[in-house]
Write a protein that binds this DNA or RNA. Structure first.
Length: 594
RNA sequence: GGGGGUGUAGCUCAGUUGGUUAGAGCGAUCGCCUGUCACGCGAUAGGUCGAGGGUUCGAGUCCCUUCACUCCCGCCA
């Protein structure tokens, strides 16, 4: 028998009655009755109630032990009387009568309670992450993460994918996020970059003829954090396939997502076949390229209404004349909502930095009328036209935003979420997946007015590839797609451009000449010149998948050792200063501020 | 880089209009308690009210500066 335990703390049942056993674990909770002490012993597997009476010589010692002390207990399994059974524990039908014990690990006074459902400050949680991770919820989240990843691995292998590792020290690339850089000792003045994703490597794996690749890949981006975005590093299920079209990638990913989400969650899937929405449609209908399809609200365009003679809403009319657009959201059967609901939305929009949302409710007396602060500006006929455009009915309300396309899209996209939540239109017990397809290849940089890659410079443009018309680059669409679930972007992917001449052409549109491309993407462009297969892939974010499955809103709840918002590891004290010697060895000069 | 929120005991939080000695629950320490499972009861210790400056007879509370954490915008193909 093992020196520390014969059983774990989650497995004793009535079948073990009267056995002499040993358990090791943490003291989760004590209930001291003075002459009788209950002591809950906890490990990874569960909790077992242990009991000792004051007639025992060790009673006084055990009474004094702090919570979270690690002890080993030798004892005898006893059946609990019917009225003392704890149904909340797997081990609740029995308890262990303590015969002897041994302290394996003492504890100082705890900086935070382990046995508590209380929320507490992030800072203290991250500093004492090893204590935080003992807590039930996050402990379970991390175990879930392990199981999901193991399951994904086995599914991918079943689907014929091979797992490979790719370099962590690689070269900096000019496109995309800011790189984490690592100075090279052997090559003074030069730097490695940590990969933002193994993008080029996975394409090189295809060129190397491996056909189907995947990796649970660490990715590093030196960008600011968000609740759903770790600073520094995160993980992707990176995958790439040869001789495929877009649909082949969709099929694999859809199959995988369905089996993962069905296995690890009881929530319903709204769509068995994930709908495909074009980029331009989603921007129009939802104002975003990551729509939450659980939310039934849809955006409509009402710009033409404000060119009518019988509409006198002059503020909007003037703006429309100058090129602004008007779009809006219809809410069903909201005529009896209190004024505070409407004003609340309007005020919220103003807080978001928009000029607010105009609103009115459609009612019918002798004829169709609009009620609300701006209702009087609309004629009966114009209202009928509005109802036609948006399928609105009497009793519905409309929220309108006016401005530049991008601003209107943004505020209405957020308004969809806000109103959808307020009216409880979003069923939290569902997953709504969709594909966003037909992304534009290029877009115009708002500030510099330059043409830039809108997503990924390695994507294959749609259309006649041999005679691609580059005169209107903004019109070119790419075989570029995103997968979205409940308004969270899980991943981007693309069919790649495997034709070097075409890549040079596209890069030249974005202002990179052949020399720069050869220099910055040497590994890839060179490889594509030696017989590259058509290929494509995608890279769903592991952390976000786990967030959805665990029902967490913050990525740190599913990350074992996350950094804080300022990209600091409070437990390990990273980043930290380095010695003069190290600096010298790396040929660096540190410029001291102040 | 910008905006919002928070900061009071080890932890979670209360603290009114600026007013005497800054409170509660949990935890810790000590004592009582033989069937609890958030055990119960009693006592004790524990505070640079994030920091600095200002206004005031008087500041946890008002003002200014600053720091930390967090959420958002920018950013993240």
């Amino acid at each position: 028998m093992n020196k520390y335990r014969s059983h774990n703390c989650g497995e004793l049942t009535i079948k073990d009655k009267n056995k002499n056993i040993s358990l090791s674990g943490w003291i989760n909770k004590k209930r001291d009755h003075g002459n009788l002490l209950f002591l809950d012993l906890r490990d990874n597997y569960g909790v077992t109630q242990c009991v000792i009476e004051n007639s025992h010589e060790k009673f006084k010692e055990l009474e004094k032990l702090s919570l979270e002390t690690v002890i080993k207990i030798d004892g005898k399994v006893l059946e609990r009387s019917k009225d003392t059974i704890n149904k909340d524990l797997n081990t609740g039908e029995v308890e262990t009568s303590i015969i002897s014990y041994e302290v394996l690990g003492k504890t100082k006074e705890l900086p935070l309670p382990v046995f508590s459902d209380q929320e507490y400050a992030e800072e203290i949680r991250l500093k004492y992450r090893f204590l935080d991770l003992r807590r039930k919820k996050i402990h379970q989240n991390i175990i879930l993460r392990s199981k999901v990843i193991a399951f994904i691995r086995s599914e991918m292998q079943k689907l014929g994918f091979l797992e490979f590792q790719t370099p962590i020290l690689t070269s900096s690339s000019p496109e995309g996020a800011r790189d984490f850089l690592v100075p090279s000792r052997l090559n003074p003045g030069k730097f490695y970059a940590l990969p933002q994703a193994p993008q080029q490597f996975k394409q090189l794996i295809m060129v190397s003829g491996f056909d189907k690749y995947f990796q649970i890949a660490p990715c590093f981006r030196d960008e600011d954090a968000r609740a759903d975005r770790s600073p520094g590093e995160f993980y992707q299920l990176d995958l790439e396939m040869s001789f495929v079209e877009q649909e082949d990638v969709f099929e694999v990913v859809e199959k995988l997502m369905k089996s993962v989400f069905k296995k690890f969650s009881d929530k319903k899937m709204l769509y068995e076949k994930f709908p495909k929405i074009t980029y331009s449609d989603t921007m129009f209908k939802y104002g975003t390229d990551k729509p939450d399809l659980r939310n039934p609200l849809i955006i409509n365009d009402f710009t033409a209404i404000f060119e009518r003679e019988d509409v006198s809403f002059d503020i909007f009319k003037k703006l429309v004349k100058k090129g602004s657009i008007v779009r809006g959201i219809v809410t069903k059967k909201t005529k009896d909502k209190p004024r505070s609901f409407f004003d609340g939305i309007d005020k919220w929009a103003k807080d978001e930095g928009a000029s607010g949302l105009a609103y009115f409710t459609i009612e019918k007396e002798s004829e169709i009328k609009a009620k609300g602060p701006v209702g009087k500006f609309f004629s009966s006929d114009s209202l009928k036209e509005i109802m036609k455009i948006s399928n609105a009915e009497v009793g519905d309300s409309i929220f309108l935003a006016c401005g530049k396309v991008k601003d209107v899209e943004k505020i209405l996209s957020n308004a969809r979420d806000k109103i959808g939540n307020e009216l409880k239109l979003i069923n939290p017990d569902t997953f709504a997946f969709c594909w966003i397809v037909d992304y534009p290849m290029f877009e115009e940089d708002e500030k510099t007015k330059k043409i830039i890659f809108s997503h990924n410079p390695f994507s294959m443009p749609q259309g006649d590839v041999k005679n691609l018309d580059l005169s209107n680059p903004l019109e070119i669409k790419a075989y570029q797609y995103d997968i979205v679930c409940n308004g969270i972007e899980l991943s981007s992917g693309a069919i790649r451009n495997h034709i070097p001449e075409l890549m040079y052409k596209l890069f030249s549109v974005a202002g990179y000449n052949k020399k720069i491309v050869d220099e910055k993407f040497s590994g890839m462009i060179n490889a594509l010149s030696y017989g590259a297969p058509p290929h494509g892939g995608i890279a769903p974010g592991i952390d976000r998948i786990i967030m959805l499955l665990a029902g967490e809103k913050n990525i740190r709840e599913v990350t074992m050792f996350p950094m804080n918002q300022n990209a600091q590891d409070l437990m390990m004290n990273a980043p930290s200063e380095i010695s003069e010697e190290q600096i010298k060895e790396l040929n660096l000069l540190i410029k001291k501020n102040k």
